[in-house]
């Protein structure tokens, strides 16, 4: 016990470097986003750089505060386009998370029921696509879904359709891409809790006369809820801000908030509005992020 305490002190010093790094490159940048989201777009100035003058030092801070304005947020709230983006991000994230749960659960369940020596292999097989480039996996789907791609060829050959179906630039393609990319994130936490499930509990349930389906809903599912929670959050949070998948696979008629941010920043060069969109997105994500943080701490640290 005392040895543990002696060990803890130098272990704490190990935090210094990563702590400073994260404060400088993770926490402080949010301050800049907030600051710029409250500043005004300077039309007269060159398209981007000097919207703000931090180089003047902290003496100019007071003046900077006076210049703050909520105009960018007013724009975000008043313009129907932005509200639509906001809502669409939520709808897409909720829908795809549900689909992921429906697909991921049976797979994770199947993995957990495999003989012990096969479980490691199955887990490896699920992880490997996560290691292959995410962009490449989306590109692989573009190959298949394009006008004269493999999918349409198969459908035509089977006489299921008479003319090629438009798959690219549709919501179905986007959902497919999202589900495809995030599936490992759903499967792994689910599998982790399902594999830990004590088989004796299932035996007890069936000894007591529960049908397999009842055993599942009364025993397995409730016990797997921590895994469900982790999987849902791991998918939902990044999907809300997803950019690449909707940009490459969905049509351009309606956008998600990540796309708006990208467009305002790179195409319109409107940094204040892009920053305001980032703040809005972040606000949306604060509750799930807090939940996720708690869950992570409980699973990783145990005694904390």
């Amino acid at each position: 016990m005392s040895a543990r305490n002696i060990f803890a002190r130098p272990a704490r010093y190990a935090a210094i470097a990563p702590y400073l790094w994260m404060v400088l490159f993770f926490l402080v940048p949010f301050g800049f986003v907030l600051k710029i989201s409250l500043s005004q777009t300077a039309i007269a100035q060159p398209p981007y750089l000097p919207l703000f003058e931090f180089t003047e030092g902290w003496g100019a801070l007071k003046a900077a505060f006076a210049a703050l304005s909520l105009d960018n947020f007013r724009l975000l709230i008043s313009d129907n386009l932005y509200i639509a983006t906001y809502l669409r991000s939520l709808v897409v994230a909720v829908t795809s998370t549900l689909i992921l749960l429906l697909i991921g659960y049976p797979i994770a369940y199947g993995m957990a029921r495999l003989p012990q020596r096969w479980q490691g292999v199955a887990m490896m097989l699920v992880i490997v696509p996560f290691w292959t480039s995410f962009l490449i996996r989306i590109y692989a789907w573009i190959n298949i879904l394009q006008h004269d791609g493999l999918l349409n060829k198969i459908l035509l050959a089977l006489h299921l359709v008479s003319v090629p179906v438009v798959w690219l630039s549709t919501d179905s393609a986007m959902y497919l891409g999202i589900v495809y990319s995030y599936l490992p994130f759903m499967i792994l936490p689910l599998y982790a809790t399902l594999a830990k499930l004590d088989p004796a509990l299932l035996e007890a349930a069936s000894d007591l006369g529960a049908a397999p389906l009842a055993t599942f809903w009364l025993v397995t599912f409730p016990l797997s809820l921590p895994g469900v929670g982790a999987g849902v959050l791991l998918c939902f949070i990044p999907i809300v801000g997803e950019f690449v998948i909707p940009d490459l696979l969905a049509g351009s008629s309606s956008m998600m908030i990540g796309q708006t941010l990208w467009l305002e920043f790179f195409t319109n060069k409107d940094w204040p509005v892009a920053s305001a969109a980032a703040v809005a997105l972040l606000l949306l994500l604060v509750p799930p992020l807090l939940l996720y943080d708690r869950l992570q701490r409980r699973t990783l640290q145990g005694e904390g």
Binding site: V28, I36, F243, F265, A278
Partner: peptide, 14 residues
């Protein structure tokens, strides 16, 4: 889990 657009934008502003 942070959406990459947020991390990217905030780091750039820094």
């Amino acid at each position: 889990v942070m959406p990459e657009v947020i991390s990217g934008l905030s780091l750039l502003l820094l």
